[in-house]
């Protein structure tokens, strides 16, 4: 079955149809067969587009900056402390919170796939799942952070957490200088997704967008 579209000796290199079309075809087949409920699919998409994302983690971080007792609870029993803020989804996770200090900087990666703390950060950005990040975070963490604009001093200890199991890691960034009078909400707005993965720090001018 050789056509003009592909060379006879390279059938396996034929570009498959558009994944969007294939996904649409798969969904309609699964719905027709009663394998999936389309309304459940709508609700799952909505949950990750609108409810579960890095703002959740940012609220957790900001709370630790204004409430020392909460910070203690979060480091000791992360799942329960995160659930206190209404993020029940964390209860199925085995969370570990790793704390940045002036002398220790933490960075999270999953070299084998894309493990990521969904309930507090939502779904990971493409770069986190990409070959460059997964390959380099463990062998050249300082170089990776430099690409994100973070230059760590030589005497800072770098701890890279490779998420090989079902433990999910959240980095607790340092509270930036100059924010002593800020409210919890103002602080939460500063905390970026990337700071909770560990590729950047939080600064009083950083803004919480990425």
């Amino acid at each position: 079955m050789h056509t003009q579209d592909h060379e006879p000796d390279h059938d396996h290199q034929v570009v498959p149809p558009d994944p969007a079309l294939r996904t649409k075809a798969l969904e309609s087949l699964l719905v027709e067969k009663g394998i999936v409920d389309p309304k459940a699919l709508d609700a799952l998409v909505d949950a990750y587009e609108n409810k579960i994302g890095p703002r959740n983690g940012a609220r957790v971080v900001a709370r630790t900056w204004v409430d020392a007792a909460y910070r203690k609870r979060l480091l000791a029993v992360p799942g329960a402390a995160i659930a206190e803020l209404g993020y029940e989804e964390t209860q199925g996770e085995h969370m570990v919170v790793v704390e940045n200090t002036a002398k220790v900087h933490n960075l999270v990666v999953c070299t084998l796939c894309s493990c990521y703390p969904w309930p507090v950060l939502g779904l990971p950005p493409v770069w986190y799942k990409s070959a460059p990040y997964r390959s380099r975070a463990v062998i050249d963490p300082r170089g990776v952070m430099r690409e994100f604009g973070l230059e760590l001093a030589e005497d800072v200890e770098v701890r890279v957490w490779d998420s090989t199991a079902e433990i999910r890691y959240l980095v607790l960034p340092e509270r930036p200088a100059g924010t002593e009078t800020w409210t919890e909400e103002e602080l939460a707005a500063l905390v970026s997704r990337d700071s909770m993965i560990g590729v950047v720090k939080v600064s009083a001018t950083s803004g919480g967008k990425a």
């Binding site: 994944p19 969007a20 996904t23 649409k24 798969l26 969904e27 699964l30 999936v36 459940a40 699919l41 709508d42 799952l44 998409v45 990750y48 587009e49 994302g53 990666v109 070299t111 084998l112 939502g122 779904l123 950005p125 493409v126 770069w127 990409s130 070959a131 460059p132 990040y133 997964r134 390959s135 380099r136 975070a137 463990v138 062998i139 990776v144 690409e147 994100f148 490779d162 967008k209 990425a210």
Partner: peptide, 29 residues
């Protein structure tokens, strides 16, 4: 882990959760 030659980390500003609707459908499926 430890492979080399994969290039720099490519970041995207204001990245959406799903880049197009089919990605969200695939996640949900």
């Amino acid at each position: 882990g430890g492979m080399q030659g994969m290039g720099p980390v490519q970041r995207e500003q204001n990245e959406p959760v799903f880049h197009s609707p089919w990605e969200g459908r695939m996640y949900a499926i």
